[in-house]
Computed example of a mutant assay.
Amino acid sequence: MTVSFAQIKASIPGAFEEGCSTRVVLDHVMSKWGVLVLSALSEGTLRWGELRRTVAGISEKMLASTLRTLADDGLVHRESFPTVPPHVEYSLTPLGEDLMARLLPLVEWVADNSERMLARS
């Protein structure tokens, strides 16, 4: 059953209103880099370098910022191992996995339709 935007707003008072936490989280999750980092991590645990190569075009600064934001939101888990050189792994939390089960169909839709959409411009 499909739920409408109006039904969501009616069931959660204040949802998506100016200044609401829903807008902040939506911005974090739906940003270009947020979607790409989360999508990459949906394949499994990745180290920094692997993640940077998978999300081609992201700067180190933007990757660090995006990972920090997604970790603060509870979507990404960061595990640091006490080795030399430092070894850090990133993975989705259960909340991140739940999100990606819902987001990946949208990512697939974009991949399937982007060429056709941009050909109209």
Rank of each mutant, 00 (worst) to 15 (best):
E97N: 00
V76K: 05
G96A: 12
D72H: 06
M62I: 01
V88F: 11
E97Y: 00
N113H: 15
P86K: 09
T66S: 13
P105Q: 06
M100N: 10
L67G: 14
L92D: 13
N113F: 15
V107G: 04
T69A: 02
F81Y: 01
G96E: 14
D73H: 02
G96S: 14
N113G: 12
N113Q: 15
A101W: 08
D72Q: 14
H77I: 11
D98S: 15
L104W: 00
E97L: 00
P82L: 11
A71F: 06
T83E: 11
G96L: 12
L70S: 00
V76T: 13
A64L: 05
A64T: 07
R78L: 02
T66M: 04
K61T: 13
T93A: 14
L103T: 08
A64F: 10
E79W: 04
A71Q: 08
V110S: 06
V110H: 08
G96W: 11
E108L: 07
Y90P: 01
P86T: 05
A71H: 08
A64G: 04
A71T: 14
H77C: 08
S91Q: 13
L92E: 08
T66A: 06
P94Y: 07
D98G: 13
D72Y: 04
L67W: 08
T83F: 02
L104Y: 05
V110C: 05
L67F: 08
V88R: 12
A101F: 03
P85A: 07
S80T: 12
V110P: 04
R68H: 13
P94F: 04
R102L: 07
S80M: 03
S91F: 10
H77Q: 12
M100L: 10
A111L: 01
D112Y: 04
K61P: 05
P82D: 15
K61Y: 13
L67C: 14
H87F: 06
P85T: 09
S65Y: 09
E79S: 07
E89R: 06
S80Q: 10
R68G: 10
S91T: 15
S59C: 03
V88P: 03
M62C: 01
E60H: 11
L63R: 05
S59L: 01
M62E: 09
S114H: 07
M62K: 02
V84R: 12
V88N: 13
L70A: 01
M100S: 00
E108P: 02
A101G: 05
L104V: 10
S80A: 11
E60Q: 07
L63P: 09
L106F: 15
P86A: 11
V88C: 11
L95K: 09
L103W: 09
R78P: 05
L92S: 14
D98R: 15
S65I: 03
L99G: 03
A111S: 09
A111K: 02
L95D: 10
D72V: 05
E108F: 07
L92Q: 12
L95S: 13
F81R: 00
V76F: 12
T83H: 02
L75Y: 01
A64K: 08
